[in-house]
Design a protein around this nucleic acid. Structure first.
Length: 419
DNA sequence: TCTGGGGTCCTAGGACCC
DNA sequence: TCTGGGGTCCTAGGACCC
């Protein structure tokens, strides 16, 4: 038996705790640059403000109903999260902290799970002021379903989903898109096959499910049928990738501004790496143009993966690798990869060495590639620059060749598409 | 005018070797 | 010179989560 504890409207609740004036008021928390709504209080939800909606679409609602608006304060949220999690861990040591506001608890062998959950819920409220919903069931996926019911339909905020009839009925009521593990793509696909509820999905054969949704989808459906497939991950996990990425408020047209930003983010990545005592084996940098800007008919991504000869967590080395990578994208010392995506190269000892256009013997082809990259360069940095670092757990190695034949094949395909 | 940031995992298909 | 089956490794891309 597993319990899923989920904090209600977590970021919004955190803001409310320290400000009595905004209790029971509509409040929203906005993302970086005040772009999107990423948390809402119940009152804000009732005004029809949607999760993930761009803030500008809701400005009139904010004004009309005097909605309180906050920018994110992650220091506050993670501090409160830690407090909640330690209360949970005190009650049940076998705990998987699933996200900043959610945890799975091992409830096996508990004779009165609902009573226990009630005690936890009270304690968290009493000691932190955060209200939580708790769903209890035999598998993680069913606990998710139970939690949804606890949050929406039950006053006590606690729901134990165990008898077969009840499970069947709740799955019949659950729209397929709301199921844990079914996102936008899968729900579109499943609806094409006439599957609208979680129950209808459980009626499909195992082979059909695996064919269409991979092994992960099959595990999820088995869990809906009551067979545990996802274990509780109670051990601490090192991060396998670390990333800093930002969207700019305005388009960026100066290379110097890009390098400045890239340095900052690279430096921050280094700090995060050192904090968990890891080293990066590869560094990936990428830049994306504004996907919502319609006048530029193609949107571009510039991606460069740098394979470090020696894994490192030295911020200065990471910064210099990132900057030389960025410069090489900018100088177009690189190979166009496929529509909207450029470059992948190898950087021994932080020196960018990429294949250049000179390597392309076919003059016509070379010309078309250069045109394509020009188009990319022109639209650079209009909106987004990202720096990610990953792979420090993976085997690192210095590649002997700049480009594999396979890569070239894909470029040929691309050229077919573009011409 | 204004659309987030940080993660994980699986799979198909090519490279390469025997 | 041509053909081939089987295995492993790697990576790009696609899916998902909060």
């Amino acid at each position: 038996m597993i319990a899923l504890v989920d904090c209600n409207n977590f970021y919004a609740s955190c803001e409310q705790i320290f400000n009595p004036l905004i209790q029971n008021k509509p409040i929203v928390v906005l993302s970086n640059n005040d772009g999107c709504v990423i948390a809402r209080s119940n009152e804000a939800k009732m005004l029809g403000i949607k999760m993930g909606d761009p803030a500008f679409k809701n400005r009139h609602i904010f004004k009309k109903y005097s909605v309180y608006i906050f920018s994110t304060n992650f220091a506050l949220y993670s501090d409160l999260s830690n407090r909640v999690m330690s209360i949970l861990a005190e009650a049940i040591p076998l705990i998987e902290i699933y996200s900043i506001d959610e945890a799975f608890l091992d409830y096996s062998g508990l004779s009165e799970p609902k009573k226990h959950a009630q005690a936890i819920r009270n304690k968290v409220m009493q000691q932190t002021g955060i209200s939580v919903s708790i769903g209890i069931a035999n598998t993680k996926t069913l606990a998710k379903v139970a939690n949804r019911i606890a949050k929406k339909e039950v006053k006590s905020g606690i729901f134990h989903l165990h008898c077969q009839d009840e499970i069947r009925d709740s799955l019949k009521k659950l729209p397929i898109s709301k199921l844990w593990g079914v996102g936008r793509r899968y729900s579109q696909k499943l609806e094409l096959y006439g599957i609208r509820t979680a129950y209808e999905l459980t009626q499909r054969s195992n082979s059909w499910i695996q064919r269409n949704m991979s092994i992960v989808g099959l595990k999820m459906v088995k869990e809906l049928r009551g067979i545990p497939c996802f274990q509780l991950e109670t051990a601490f996990q090192w991060k396998k990738s670390i990333r800093i990425s930002r969207t700019f408020r305005e388009g960026i047209h100066l290379f110097s501004v890009l390098t400045q930003a890239m340095s900052t983010y690279a430096f921050m990545c280094g700090a995060k790496l050192r904090k968990q005592r890891s080293c990066a084996g590869t560094i990936t940098i990428f830049i994306i143009t504004n996907p919502f800007k319609h006048e530029c008919h193609v949107n571009y991504k510039g991606i460069l993966t740098i394979y470090l000869e020696t894994p490192t967590n030295d911020s200065l080395k990471i910064v210099s690798a990132a900057i030389s990578g960025l410069r090489s994208i900018y100088r177009r010392d690189c190979i166009y990869k496929k529509a909207g995506v450029i470059v992948s190269g190898i950087v021994p000892q932080s020196q960018v060495q990429l294949s250049t256009f000179d390597d392309i013997k076919d003059l016509d082809r070379r010309h078309r590639l250069m045109q394509a990259v020009d188009a990319v360069n022109e639209s650079y940095g209009q909106m987004k620059i990202c720096l990610g670092i990953n792979g420090f757990e993976q085997k690192w190695k210095l590649k002997q060749e700049y480009l594999s034949p396979r890569y070239t094949t894909r470029m040929d395909e691309l050229l077919k598409i573009r011409t």
